[in-house]
Design a binder for these strands. Structure first.
Lengths: 237, 237
DNA sequence: ATTATCTATAGATCTATAGATAATGC
DNA sequence: ATTATCTATAGATCTATAGATAATGC
């Protein structure tokens, strides 16, 4: 009847816990619950029962949407890295741009995404389970993102120990976001530019060039309207 | 310090798997097995059976040394942070020293310890389980180490956004070591000075001052004989 | 007599599957 | 007829405890 957010047609047996008030689809409700519990309690320590019940379902009903527990984690991880990867590709495709400004923009976008999600999905990168076969696609995407950082470093000028420097840069992004997250009062708007500045300092940029990159990114933002999106639960498959 | 490796008197029922050839005490064998499996497979995913059997014992025998599975993790975590903390205290107690050189030395020591251990114990810091009550002492020690980094940053000169900068520095250390560890060919001797250099770049040091700090640390090393120790399994309790 | 280890197991899970059921849609 | 959900459960764990045993030490 009303034009906004009317409950979607409710086919199927009703939920034992009563109808959900969420705007999210059931599949998204399950993902959101998994994100919260995996980041709070760890992957292995989180039971499928806990995920399903936080989503308002019984344990077995979760399997209507995800055939295995691993599929939850793989979906979440891929949704975290894909937007940054897409952003990196557009930056690399503009060979006339200032590489320092591009690195600043990518570092800010990536760290805002990692930081700004409802849950600290970045922490999931370190999970040992991620070495498994099911996560090959995620690892591939992450390696491609690392290559984008390496390429931007290279465009900025000759880099001694390029691979090591690239790893330190990626480590700063992931570790820095994780460390700053420990203070619950911080915001992505405050942390992400600070991480981007730090990335340029790490790359050896002098202060003036960092300031220029920051200005340049602000101008590009205005054109593109590309403030880092944090809707990491956007449908993935 | 003491004895060279003669088999210790073997009181008690013999092991079903036969006597151990390790030089480590049984307790240390259990810790080493736990370190390997926790870092490789995760804490929750590692069973007490797997730990015990890698140590050459039956599952229940592990409980002769550790009353709970959590005690394994707490012991390992504390052993990883305590040496860096002790080193940091000696650096802070020398107010005449160059703070940039001290920061370089601490960053190198800490990252060598994190990197150089047999296993990547640094990755365990991120484990959600570490938020639990049993790990309060570890978190206290880690917070004290963070304060030491903050104090050294402050001594180097006025720092805007000190807390955020400190978090980024700590993030670089932990994240950088984790990222560089993904290439199995790297060594602590190569990574640790590179992390220390990166820490000073992050702190805004110009290249000459970094070179000076590096030289200074090398001189202090020679006096002190304090190459970062990586015997993270030294008895802790 | 003390110690380090063993065997056995209680009790509590946990994942994933099988098959039933209560809605809407045609 | 299709769908989303439910109930029930098989089978496989896992942690921690109880109590026995096979060494050395006194």
């Amino acid at each position: 009847m009303s034009g906004t957010a009317f409950p979607r047609p409710r086919v199927g047996r009703p939920r034992a816990a009563g109808p959900s008030s969420s705007e999210l689809s059931p599949r998204e409700q399950v993902l959101a619950a998994a994100a919260e519990l995996f980041t709070r309690n760890g992957y292995a320590a989180t039971t499928t029962r806990a995920v399903a019940e936080l989503a308002g379902l019984r344990q077995a009903s979760m399997y209507h949407y995800f055939a295995r527990k691993e599929d939850l984690l793989a979906t979440l991880l891929e949704s975290t890295v894909e937007p940054s990867l897409a952003f990196a590709r557009t930056l690399l495709d503009d060979p006339g741009a200032d590489p320092a400004a591009a690195l600043w923009a990518l570092a800010r976008y990536d760290s805002a995404l990692l930081f700004g999600g409802l849950y600290n999905l970045g922490a999931l990168y370190q999970l040992p389970e991620v070495r498994g076969e099911r996560f090959a696609e995620f690892r591939r995407a992450r390696a491609e993102l690392r290559s984008a950082y390496r390429e931007l470093l290279t465009r900025m000028g000759p880099v001694p120990e390029l691979e090591l420097r690239t790893d330190l840069l990626v480590g700063l992004l992931e570790g820095g976001v994780a460390a700053t997250r420990e203070d619950p009062d911080r915001t992505a708007a405050e942390v992400a530019p600070a991480v981007a500045d730090a990335a340029l300092r790490l790359a050896g940029c002098p202060a003036e060039r960092i300031a220029a990159a920051r200005t340049d990114a602000a101008r590009t933002d205005a054109v593109r309207g590309a403030t880092a999106r944090t809707d990491e639960l956007r449908e993935v498959s």
